[in-house]
Nucleic acid binder design. Structure first.
Length: 104
DNA sequence: CTGGTGACGTCTT
DNA sequence: GAAGACGCCACCA
């Protein structure tokens, strides 16, 4: 268990269902603004059977990641929609579904 | 230590 | 709005 992974996973697990966070927001919330890539790296290290709700972490712009890997992108979208998140095109309205620690 | 890589973000054309 | 360049830095070979 690496420090970064633990930090990232711990925060992602706190995101309520039906809400989303941007990679950059996660990094900033952990005290590391500008390190969105490391957040992505930490999530990439998750096992397939993880209980961490990684689908709730999307790009800061609201669009989904995994543009190069449609399989997980569709899974992510399906899971979010199942939680009540509405999609507009390929993205989500961050102003509506965005979440930050303490907002819960 | 060196170099390549990447589930990103921001700035510049 | 779209595409390209650059920065960021943990991880792996």
């Amino acid at each position: 268990m690496k420090g970064w992974n633990r930090l990232v996973w711990g925060l992602v697990e706190q995101i309520p269902a039906g809400r989303v966070m941007g990679y950059g927001h996660v990094a900033a919330a952990l005290g590391h603004p500008g390190r969105a890539r490391q957040v992505g790296w930490a999530l990439a290290a998750l096992p397939r059977d993880t209980t961490v709700p990684w689908q709730r972490v999307i790009r800061s712009s609201g669009s989904l990641a995994f543009q190069g890997t449609p399989e997980r992108a569709m899974l992510q979208r399906a899971r979010l929609q199942a939680e009540g998140v509405e999609f507009q095109g390929d993205g989500v309205d961050m102003a509506r579904y965005g979440w930050l620690p303490g907002d819960g």
